[in-house]
Design a binder for these strands. Sequence first.
DNA 1: TATTTTGAACACGAACCATGTTTGTTATGT
DNA 2: ACATAACAAACATGGTTCGTGTTCAAAATA
Lengths: 252, 252
Amino acid sequence: MASVERHQQITDAVRHAGQLSVAELAELTSTSEMTIRRDLEILAEQGLLERYRGGARSLLLRGEEPPFALRAHDGLEVKQRIAAAVGAMIADGEAVVIDSGTTCLEVARALTHRRLTVMPLSLHAANALVGAPQLRLLLPGGEPRPGELALTGPLAEASLAALRFDTAVIGCCGLNAANGLTAYDLADAAIKRAVMASANRVIAVAEAAKFSRTALAFVAPTSALHAVVTGDDAPNDEADALEAAGVVVRRV
Amino acid sequence: MASVERHQQITDAVRHAGQLSVAELAELTSTSEMTIRRDLEILAEQGLLERYRGGARSLLLRGEEPPFALRAHDGLEVKQRIAAAVGAMIADGEAVVIDSGTTCLEVARALTHRRLTVMPLSLHAANALVGAPQLRLLLPGGEPRPGELALTGPLAEASLAALRFDTAVIGCCGLNAANGLTAYDLADAAIKRAVMASANRVIAVAEAAKFSRTALAFVAPTSALHAVVTGDDAPNDEADALEAAGVVVRRV
DNA sequence: TATTTTGAACACGAACCATGTTTGTTATGT
DNA sequence: ACATAACAAACATGGTTCGTGTTCAAAATA
């Protein structure tokens, strides 16, 4: 599949330049203009960019969260390492709630063949877990946000309020000592808080980039976490601050 | 895809004979034994049959409900006609809850491009509706039953109890004047009752075969229904009995 | 131990997908 | 209104994948 990386290339180039012409993109990727047009059609359908006559402009604003399909393939190896480490921290028989997001989706995949009770908070993870023989799968209600398929809203919160989990695995958009754990989406932040309230142990997953980012919605201070699993390239000062706050830090 | 109809052929033959050898199946389908083995591996994974050395035996017991994947392609045209008719009975802007099952899945598909609020009771339907632009999608909580992916249990009932719908579309395993609406699964029957309690109007969908069948779990008498949509080959006496009970009957 | 069944490995062919080219249509600018 | 550029549909082509058959070594059964 050379096409997916060309799509990535186009998306990146358009995002960086703001807008680019079909001819420029054809030259950049050394393909025909027709191929570029077909690509742009697909990418526009995914909401990544907007076509205009002669080219396309990016719809990914600075600071805005890129769509799920894009993030899913980004840094997959790190996410899988993190997911494996989280899996090792969970004992058979536990009841686990897994947040939405691409890293948490990998965690769900890593737990597929375990003997556990699992409640995923996104349909992506739910679909990944369907059919797992030893797994007891539990779904919260809610409204799936387009693309992300994260279940939010009163129904989701009610589902969480009715349950108590051994472990919660939550993702985040930003995580640092100064601003705590933050999320892009307000409804998502509310869910994360509900999750943390109904779990005995909270494990946060966060690639290194998350430490230097802060999103709109505040969820909780870092002291509310019991453990953070991150990549081996996480900044030392943030890791130290977490440990000083009593959080177990695992770098993989 | 000639393979799917060969799978169907194998499943039917094995179910009819109880068990068959690899050689017999190879001759029946005029393929190689290796292909049969690969097919059996797939079918065994789906729980349709059980392999033993030299052949396979059916796991589909008489009277038991065949698995979802099998029913989904059976009588698809009728189901789609029924689904279209149901769609015509629903007005834009309504809040609709859609039951699990293959016929209801078609109803969900028929509503994809409508402007509605929809709560599907199975993950199959949920996945079919994800990404529909004009649709407000709402999911109940619950435990997805393997294969069927119908959401059941206390979480699902709680989600339903919190909502009021304009219309409920429910499927069934059996439907006739003598035994009312019946379902194979107890948990499913409980959900159907909850659905009916939280909807102003109840439309049941039922292919003709459902009228001559009665399943284990009683859900409700036919008088609890407002309308029944069925195929044009539905038995007259049952249709008359329904109309006598004040139920609108639509045959398509 | 002899025989049969099985599944992994390789090979072949068909179907499918992505790409490029051509051509007619549509939109834009002067 | 005309000329030009961009677009999209239609067709052809090359590459890839998927399904199937064959062969052979390993495993299970008698």
